[in-house]
Design a protein around this nucleic acid. Structure first.
Lengths: 142, 142
DNA sequence: TGGGGATTGGTACTAAAGTATGAGTGATTT
DNA sequence: AAATCACTCATACTTTAGTACCAATCCCCA
């Protein structure tokens, strides 16, 4: 899904570019009456706008791929989060360190690391801060 | 400080644009031997890249105008948070690593660490995850 | 009776975060 | 002109986080 979207985007952009170029070349023969400086200016503005648009598209793609991953209540089931992992996640969201979590759950810090590491895999994140924002997106924690 | 930077940026952009246009017009008479289509293509790519760059600049500035929706000016004043520290805080709240923050703000990771460290002191926390929850309590970020 | 998942704990390592300290620059203020 | 502040960058260091393995226990279920 994601690579497809990206491909479509890229092809769309390439096509747009080519079309614009062709049109430009075409117009070159139609606007002979006007100053080529004016034409250059229009082209510059146009392609600058195109660049801005491309950048925005790229950003939107990032946001969608990261943010639109179902905030439904069955996220826990879908993600396969275990009870203990959820415990750890909640304490992480509170800002606890691994040692503090270990103390509060009466387990060793190693176990906390195991849970958190599995947690990150399931949430598809790399750091605990990302896990927090993600968990809030999914409504796992408040 | 900030409006000055923005002014410089805008002026820089305007200057760059004008210079590029002038150069373009200049080259127009120097590259008569070459195909104007090639020249058009180079111009298109150049200005598209310029547009992308501008969009990135705008996004960095939007971090203030859009991200500062309700940052409780009183809290900021009371805590003595500087503008740059707030930038770092927002990106931390997004789950970014120090390196990612450095890349987005165009500063070194050392500077990010300096800002974040000062930040933690002012927020009276010890870790970035705590900083996030604290910042949300204070309404600094959402 | 064996498999599988969940929980727990461990070692060993790499990566990231955080602290302490110093220092240079530019802008503002006094 | 001097003091001050925000921002920047750096080194050197300690601490915490995270990964990659492994393994024991328990419980449920086929």
């Amino acid at each position: 899904m994601k690579p497809m979207k990206r491909s479509i985007l890229i092809y769309g952009l390439a096509l747009g570019l080519i079309l614009m170029l062709l049109k430009a070349i075409e117009y070159r023969y139609l606007v002979r009456g006007f100053s080529i400086d004016v034409y250059m200016g229009i082209m510059a503005i146009g392609f600058t706008a195109l660049g801005i648009w491309i950048a925005r598209q790229m950003r939107n793609n990032e946001n969608h791929s990261l943010g639109t991953v179902m905030p439904d209540p069955e996220s826990i089931e879908a993600l396969g989060l275990s009870e203990r992992e959820l415990d750890v996640l909640k304490l992480i969201a509170k800002g606890c360190s691994n040692q503090e979590i270990a103390d509060q759950l009466y387990i060793s810090i190693h176990t906390v690391k195991t849970h958190s590491s599995n947690l990150y895999s399931k949430l598809d994140v790399k750091r605990r801060t990302q896990a927090v924002t993600r968990a809030k997106e999914l409504g796992l924690v408040h």
